[in-house]
Protein backbone atom coordinates (compact mmCIF):
# COMPACT_ATOMS: atom_id res chain seq x y z
CA UNK A 1 0.00 0.00 0.00
CA UNK A 2 2.78 2.36 0.91
CA UNK A 3 4.27 2.46 -2.56
CA UNK A 4 1.01 3.67 -4.04
CA UNK A 5 0.42 7.34 -4.38
CA UNK A 6 -2.82 8.69 -3.08
CA UNK A 7 -4.12 10.16 -6.32
CA UNK A 8 -3.88 6.95 -8.28
CA UNK A 9 -5.46 5.14 -5.38
CA UNK A 10 -8.39 7.55 -5.30
CA UNK A 11 -8.84 7.17 -9.03
CA UNK A 12 -8.76 3.42 -8.61
CA UNK A 13 -11.41 3.61 -5.92
CA UNK A 14 -13.72 5.66 -8.11
CA UNK A 15 -13.32 3.09 -10.87
CA UNK A 16 -13.98 0.28 -8.42
CA UNK A 17 -17.15 2.00 -7.23
CA UNK A 18 -18.10 2.05 -10.91
CA UNK A 19 -17.57 -1.75 -10.82
CA UNK A 20 -14.94 -1.80 -13.51
CA UNK A 21 -13.39 -5.26 -13.52
CA UNK A 22 -9.89 -4.04 -14.39
CA UNK A 23 -9.85 -1.64 -11.48
CA UNK A 24 -11.25 -4.30 -9.18
CA UNK A 25 -8.53 -6.70 -10.22
CA UNK A 26 -5.90 -4.01 -9.59
CA UNK A 27 -7.27 -3.28 -6.11
CA UNK A 28 -7.38 -7.00 -5.42
CA UNK A 29 -3.75 -7.37 -6.45
CA UNK A 30 -2.70 -4.53 -4.20
CA UNK A 31 -4.66 -5.60 -1.15
CA UNK A 32 -4.84 -9.35 -1.34
CA UNK A 33 -1.42 -10.30 0.12
CA UNK A 34 -1.98 -8.29 3.28
CA UNK A 35 -5.58 -9.35 3.61
CA UNK A 36 -4.77 -12.98 2.92
CA UNK A 37 -2.30 -12.87 5.78
CA UNK A 38 -5.09 -11.59 8.05
CA UNK A 39 -7.47 -14.29 6.86
CA UNK A 40 -4.81 -16.93 7.38
CA UNK A 41 -4.19 -16.05 10.97
CA UNK A 42 -7.90 -15.93 11.72
CA UNK A 43 -8.51 -19.34 10.18
CA UNK A 44 -7.52 -22.94 10.53
CA UNK A 45 -6.05 -23.58 7.12
CA UNK A 46 -5.50 -22.15 3.68
CA UNK A 47 -8.85 -23.28 2.29
CA UNK A 48 -10.78 -21.53 4.99
CA UNK A 49 -8.64 -18.43 4.49
CA UNK A 50 -9.35 -18.46 0.75
CA UNK A 51 -13.08 -18.52 1.42
CA UNK A 52 -12.76 -15.66 3.87
CA UNK A 53 -10.65 -13.65 1.44
CA UNK A 54 -13.27 -14.05 -1.24
CA UNK A 55 -16.12 -13.15 1.07
CA UNK A 56 -14.28 -10.07 2.34
CA UNK A 57 -13.53 -8.79 -1.14
CA UNK A 58 -17.12 -9.21 -2.24
CA UNK A 59 -18.16 -7.14 0.76
CA UNK A 60 -15.59 -4.49 -0.07
CA UNK A 61 -16.51 -4.22 -3.73
CA UNK A 62 -20.19 -4.02 -2.89
CA UNK A 63 -19.82 -1.42 -0.16
CA UNK A 64 -16.94 0.67 -1.39
CA UNK A 65 -19.15 3.70 -1.93
CA UNK A 66 -19.90 3.70 1.79
CA UNK A 67 -16.25 4.40 2.60
CA UNK A 68 -15.92 7.91 3.87
CA UNK A 69 -12.49 9.43 3.60
CA UNK A 70 -12.30 10.07 7.32
CA UNK A 71 -10.09 7.16 8.26
CA UNK A 72 -7.50 5.32 6.27
CA UNK A 73 -8.75 3.03 3.53
CA UNK A 74 -6.53 0.22 4.72
CA UNK A 75 -7.85 0.49 8.25
CA UNK A 76 -11.41 0.35 6.93
CA UNK A 77 -10.71 -2.63 4.73
CA UNK A 78 -8.82 -4.40 7.49
CA UNK A 79 -11.75 -3.92 9.82
CA UNK A 80 -14.11 -5.38 7.21
CA UNK A 81 -11.89 -8.41 6.89
CA UNK A 82 -11.62 -8.90 10.62
CA UNK A 83 -15.39 -8.63 10.92
CA UNK A 84 -15.83 -11.13 8.10
CA UNK A 85 -13.58 -13.58 9.95
CA UNK A 86 -15.42 -13.08 13.24
CA UNK A 87 -18.79 -13.48 11.54
CA UNK A 88 -17.63 -16.69 9.90
CA UNK A 89 -16.61 -18.17 13.22
CA UNK A 90 -19.81 -17.06 14.87
CA UNK A 91 -21.68 -19.01 12.23
CA UNK A 92 -19.63 -22.13 12.85
CA UNK A 93 -19.43 -21.66 16.53
CA UNK A 94 -17.29 -24.16 18.36
CA UNK A 95 -16.27 -22.14 21.36
CA UNK A 96 -15.15 -24.23 24.22
CA UNK A 97 -16.01 -23.15 27.68
CA UNK A 98 -13.16 -22.59 29.96
CA UNK A 99 -11.90 -23.71 33.27
CA UNK A 100 -11.30 -20.93 35.71
CA UNK A 101 -7.91 -19.38 35.52
CA UNK A 102 -7.07 -20.69 38.99
CA UNK A 103 -7.42 -24.29 37.86
CA UNK A 104 -4.88 -23.97 35.12
CA UNK A 105 -1.30 -24.86 35.78
CA UNK A 106 1.27 -22.29 34.88
CA UNK A 107 3.64 -22.96 32.06
CA UNK A 108 6.17 -20.35 31.19
CA UNK A 109 8.53 -20.36 28.35
CA UNK A 110 12.01 -18.87 28.34
CA UNK A 111 13.02 -16.20 25.90
CA UNK A 112 15.71 -18.37 24.44
CA UNK A 113 13.17 -20.81 23.05
CA UNK A 114 11.12 -17.92 21.75
CA UNK A 115 14.03 -16.50 19.84
CA UNK A 116 14.22 -19.69 17.86
CA UNK A 117 10.74 -19.24 16.40
CA UNK A 118 10.54 -18.15 12.79
CA UNK A 119 7.92 -16.03 11.09
CA UNK A 120 6.45 -18.96 9.25
CA UNK A 121 6.19 -20.92 12.49
CA UNK A 122 4.17 -18.15 14.08
CA UNK A 123 1.41 -18.38 11.51
CA UNK A 124 1.22 -22.15 11.87
CA UNK A 125 1.10 -21.84 15.63
CA UNK A 126 -1.77 -19.37 15.55
CA UNK A 127 -3.67 -21.56 13.13
CA UNK A 128 -3.37 -24.47 15.53
CA UNK A 129 -5.31 -22.60 18.21
CA UNK A 130 -8.97 -23.48 18.63
CA UNK A 131 -11.20 -20.91 16.94
CA UNK A 132 -12.36 -19.00 19.98
CA UNK A 133 -8.87 -18.59 21.38
CA UNK A 134 -7.45 -17.77 17.99
CA UNK A 135 -9.88 -14.94 17.44
CA UNK A 136 -9.25 -13.35 20.81
CA UNK A 137 -5.50 -13.80 20.51
CA UNK A 138 -5.45 -12.18 17.08
CA UNK A 139 -7.68 -9.31 18.10
CA UNK A 140 -5.76 -8.53 21.28
CA UNK A 141 -2.16 -9.34 20.51
CA UNK A 142 -1.83 -8.72 16.79
CA UNK A 143 -4.54 -6.21 15.94
CA UNK A 144 -4.30 -4.33 19.21
CA UNK A 145 -7.93 -4.26 20.35
CA UNK A 146 -8.68 -3.91 24.05
CA UNK A 147 -10.62 -6.46 26.07
CA UNK A 148 -13.71 -4.24 26.21
CA UNK A 149 -13.70 -3.81 22.44
CA UNK A 150 -13.24 -7.53 21.92
CA UNK A 151 -16.06 -8.26 24.33
CA UNK A 152 -18.32 -6.06 22.25
CA UNK A 153 -17.21 -7.45 18.91
CA UNK A 154 -17.61 -11.07 19.92
CA UNK A 155 -20.62 -10.51 22.14
CA UNK A 156 -18.97 -12.11 25.16
CA UNK A 157 -18.04 -10.79 28.57
CA UNK A 158 -14.76 -8.99 29.15
CA UNK A 159 -13.74 -11.74 31.50
CA UNK A 160 -14.24 -14.36 28.83
CA UNK A 161 -12.01 -12.37 26.55
CA UNK A 162 -9.31 -12.24 29.22
CA UNK A 163 -9.57 -15.92 30.02
CA UNK A 164 -9.48 -16.91 26.38
CA UNK A 165 -6.42 -14.79 25.79
CA UNK A 166 -4.73 -16.36 28.80
CA UNK A 167 -5.54 -19.86 27.60
CA UNK A 168 -4.47 -19.01 24.07
CA UNK A 169 -1.04 -17.96 25.27
CA UNK A 170 -0.80 -21.13 27.30
CA UNK A 171 -1.77 -23.39 24.46
CA UNK A 172 0.72 -21.71 22.18
CA UNK A 173 3.45 -22.19 24.75
CA UNK A 174 2.47 -25.81 25.19
CA UNK A 175 2.66 -26.40 21.47
CA UNK A 176 6.01 -24.64 21.23
CA UNK A 177 7.44 -26.73 24.04
CA UNK A 178 6.04 -29.94 22.63
CA UNK A 179 7.46 -29.29 19.21
CA UNK A 180 10.86 -28.71 20.74
CA UNK A 181 12.05 -26.36 18.05
CA UNK A 182 15.63 -26.52 19.16
Amino acid sequence: MADFNIETLNELLVQCIDKQPKAQKKLFDILSPRMFAICLRYSQNEDEAKDLLQEGFIKIFNNLEQFSNKGSLEGWIKRIFINTCIEFHRKNQKHRFLDNIENVTEISIDSQTLSLLKKADLMKLVQKLPKGYRTVFNLFVVDGYGHSEIAEMLNVSENTSKTQLFRARQILQEIILKQDLK
Binding site: S32, P33, R34, F36, A37, L53, L122, M123, N138, V142
Partner: peptide, 11 residues
Protein backbone atom coordinates in the same frame (compact mmCIF):
# COMPACT_ATOMS: atom_id res chain seq x y z
CA UNK B 1 2.63 -8.92 16.84
CA UNK B 2 5.81 -8.14 14.98
CA UNK B 3 5.79 -11.41 13.17
CA UNK B 4 2.17 -11.29 12.05
CA UNK B 5 0.82 -7.76 12.01
CA UNK B 6 2.17 -6.55 8.70
CA UNK B 7 2.57 -9.92 7.12
CA UNK B 8 1.82 -10.22 3.42
CA UNK B 9 1.21 -13.56 1.78
CA UNK B 10 0.19 -13.75 -1.84
CA UNK B 11 -2.99 -15.80 -2.10
Amino acid sequence: KEGLENNAITP
